[in-house]
């Protein structure tokens, strides 16, 4: 079971942290294997940024993502920039408030993508009251839509990763993410 995941967004959204938590949950708490990589340098400052995760129940030899079968898009720019090599029938999760879905309808159709929406940023702002936890809301949606990591592992990984004092807010964000994700 080798699964290749890509999460794209813009700098400051916590895309990287979201990827680290997924990989940490898979490897430390679900006892699977995981590798997390990310874009560095000028590419990572402002503009589109991405992190990639490989999860497997066997030792992972090749550590990079070649053709993601799960793509989480938290910005339109990242979606357009990084969608090219996505697999056919892949699972796409988008934040509908940050992505112009109509612009990728042809790709969705052509590659037969299964699309989910998660208004993570709006939910973080309106329900939690802090836009900064949009990445954790999206994490909840990711877990709900993919079942690649267990909810328990995700929560443990959140607690092991977020700053002290923000645990409750982040767990709440995670739970909201589970609720709001919808298949289109």
């Amino acid at each position: 079971m080798r699964k290749e995941i890509r999460i794209g967004g813009f700098g400051g959204q916590g895309v990287l942290m979201c990827g680290i938590i997924i990989a940490k949950a898979a490897s430390l708490f679900d006892n699977n294997y995981a590798v997390q990589t990310q874009s560095y340098g000028p590419e990572a400052r402002g503009g589109a940024s991405r992190t990639e995760i490989v999860i497997s129940d066997e030792q992972i030899d090749y550590p990079k993502v070649e053709h993601p079968e799960i793509f989480v898009a938290m910005s339109h720019e990242a979606l357009i920039k990084y969608i090219d090599d996505i697999q056919d029938n892949a699972l796409l999760i988008i934040d509908p408030d940050l992505v112009y879905k109509e612009e990728i309808d042809n790709i969705i159709k052509e590659k037969n993508l299964v699309t989910y929406t998660s208004p993570a940023t709006k939910t973080a702002q309106d329900t939690i009251g802090r836009a900064i936890v949009a990445n954790i809301v999206m994490l909840g949606s990711f877990v709900e839509a993919t079942n690649l990591i267990t909810k328990e592992a995700a929560k443990e990984a959140i607690l092991a990763s977020v700053p002290e004092g923000t645990e409750d807010m982040n767990l709440q964000a995670f739970d909201e993410g589970i609720k709001i994700v919808e298949k289109t």
Binding site: I20, A23, K24, S27, L28, Y33, A34, V35, Q36, T37, Q38, Y40, I60, P63, K64
Partner: peptide
């Protein structure tokens, strides 16, 4: 190298 230096694993 840069890849092994920057990637994360258990």
């Amino acid at each position: 190298d840069e890849i092994v230096g920057h990637m994360r694993e258990k």
